[in-house]
Amino acid sequence: MKAFDFKKYRKQIIAAVIIVAVCIILGVLKPGREALLSRTSPEMQKLIDADAGSSRKRVTVTYNSLLVISYASLSSSGANVMSERYVGFLGKVYRADEGAARIVGQMVNYTYRMLGCGENLMHGAKLTVLLTTLTVFFGVLLGTVLALGKISKRKLLAKISSAYIFFFRGTPLLIQMFVVYFTVPGIFGFAWRDLFPASDAEAVYKGAFTAALIAFALNSGAYCAEIVRSAIQSIDKGQFEAAKALGMSYGQTMTRIIIPQSIRRMIPNVSNEFIMILKDASLVFAISLMDITTISKNIMTSEGSYLVFIPALVIYLVITAFFGFLFDRIEKRFSVYE
């Protein structure tokens, strides 16, 4: 592998440096939490002060900071329904209760929530990316095992692999996830969250995530098996013969000769599978996890704002573009010999 070619990417690098520099400057000039909340109206402040003395609090204080812009809102529940919103940008604080400022504020807030900022890893874009990458990783591993099983000369092994692939491709992922999350613990008498220490408040999300990952990986394995199988079978028969004539065993032939050559041929299909899973990740709503799609749907139903889908699309596209680029690099890396 050659060292990174700086000359070839000069323009891109300069652009990236400028963007990063601008972001840093805007980020530094962005008003912080204190600045935004110092604008709180006296009426709202009164409610906040009242909260201090009571256990049932009434005011929700939100502060979202997103790179170059910040947003804060205060809203009260109960009889005194009030809300105030502020946006901070370039050293200035703007009241954001209506008009364009409100839309900007909403966008910041929606984006913040969909990215899963200020939440654990099993939330929003973090959940989507984590679930998707881990699924593809384990899916490809499992798929390779299944593909080798399916093309194996051992009939039983081939049958088991085929049956597995048939089952997982022939049934919906949503139901597979239900079975893993609800049915399996019901039968065997365990809870997913008990896999994590009881002291861990987020154990319930981690448990659900584990169940989702298992279901996703089992499912993706079946699809990846077909990808790996067709990649292996696309390798020239002469490669097997040459390896055999040199005395290499089946295992050596596969791991040293055939699979390394197959990888490049699988990448476009694995990349497709990745994008499919990225979108399928929204199915985790069914086991109480919140990915990008679920959060945007929730915001839509609870606030009736259809604007939420714009940042959602942007987030998906950024993720897709980033991983598309990554797969492209991997493919290039594996085709240096061509």
Binding site: F182, G186, A191, W192, R193, A208, S288, M290
Partner: peptide, 16 residues
């Protein structure tokens, strides 16, 4: 937060 109330009771029963 679940779509269906039945999921909530299953989660309670399973110990989630």
């Amino acid at each position: 937060a679940n779509e269906k109330i039945t999921s909530c009771f299953t989660q309670l029963q399973n110990g989630e």
